[in-house]
């Protein structure tokens, strides 16, 4: 769709792309493997789930040029332009709070023994647009277990890197830096919750939250915090950036919900990037079969 210099690509891009193309054909035949509302392995696919054919992945170009990453500017094109200054190697993640193995872990140690898999997820932005993104990553829960959270750990709090030299917009005060997000423990341990390290078959580009980024596909995109520098096990619901800024607009849960409008716009429909007309937004972004039980008995218009 877009003809531009493939400057983001590595020198092995051509081979990688061919591989990718072949893998897509393979995956198309293995619908059950594709985690697009069809259930993760071990769960039965549900007939009402959207077929993968309805959700072809967005192009690399779209996914890497249209981003919300306020640390590099508030415009959608700013992150792709400005994120070059981010140094993703070496990278440490501080783990602290209610766990028996806190510490400052180099990224390589965290990735050790983690089999990287592809997960094709819908991403629904709270602003009313959506994409389908083929992530590379691993389940967050598998990593969290390694730190042996105690029974007092009820929530997980995440922080993006704080370094105004690498993230120039942190010199301004558009948001309260560092960016903070949080999940309830059961949400964090849910098999759909991913830590992404790559996109298509490439390393995660800086503008998409390199080197390590949270992906929670049933929540609005701003919950999927980028460039993780700190993971804390906490006892209370953490104060999160957008919720603190405007609690009536951005709830702590922020599950995708077509029935609860944002005060300034409806959430009933969304514009899939690359499409002309709007789609109906699906409850929990189409992952209701997998995650609705997490919120059984909760008034979702209250805990939005």
């Amino acid at each position: 769709m877009f003809i531009r210099k493939p400057q983001q690509l590595t020198e092995n891009a051509v081979t990688d792309w061919a591989l990718y193309q072949r893998r897509r054909e393979f995956l198309r035949g293995m619908a059950g493997v594709i985690l697009l509302g069809a259930g993760w392995p071990g769960r039965a696919a549900v007939a009402t789930s959207p077929r993968p054919a309805d959700d072809p992945p967005n192009s690399w170009e779209d996914i890497t040029s249209y981003n919300n990453f306020y640390e590099f500017g508030t415009g959608k094109g700013d992150p792709a332009r400005n994120a070059r200054t981010l140094q993703t190697s070496p990278w440490d993640v501080v783990v602290d709070g209610e766990c028996t193995r806190p510490g400052k872990y180099p990224l390589e140690d965290l990735l050790k023994g983690m089999a990287i898999e592809e997960r094709i997820y819908r991403l629904r932005c709270v602003e009313g647009w959506s994409m389908v993104i083929p992530w590379q990553g691993f389940e967050l829960g598998r990593l969290l277990k390694r730190f042996e959270p105690t029974s007092r750990a009820k929530y997980v709090r995440f922080e993006t890197l704080l370094d105004p030299k690498q993230m120039p917009a942190q010199q301004g005060d558009v948001l309260d830096w560092p960016y903070v997000e949080g999940l309830r423990m059961d949400e964090a341990m849910h098999p759909l919750t991913l830590l992404a390290t790559g996109l298509y078959d490439k390393t995660l580009p800086n503008q998409n939250g390199a080197p390590l980024r949270l992906v929670v596909p049933w929540k609005y995109g701003f919950k999927s915090l980028k460039s993780i520098a700190r993971i804390s096990f906490v006892t209370e619901e953490p104060e999160t950036t957008w919720n603190r800024l405007s609690p009536e607009e951005y709830g702590f849960y922020s599950n995708v919900n077509p029935e609860v409008p944002h005060p300034r716009w409806s959430q009933a429909r969304e514009r899939r990037i690359g499409e002309f007309s709007k789609r109906k937004t699906l409850m929990f972004n189409g992952y209701a079969d997998q995650v609705a039980s997490l919120y059984a008995g909760m008034d979702l218009s209250l805990y939005f």
Binding site: D62, W129, R271, G274
Partner: peptide, 9 residues
């Protein structure tokens, strides 16, 4: 296609 990923916006 000059207008990026979301030309409508």
């Amino acid at each position: 296609h000059w207008l990026g990923a979301n030309p409508v916006e």
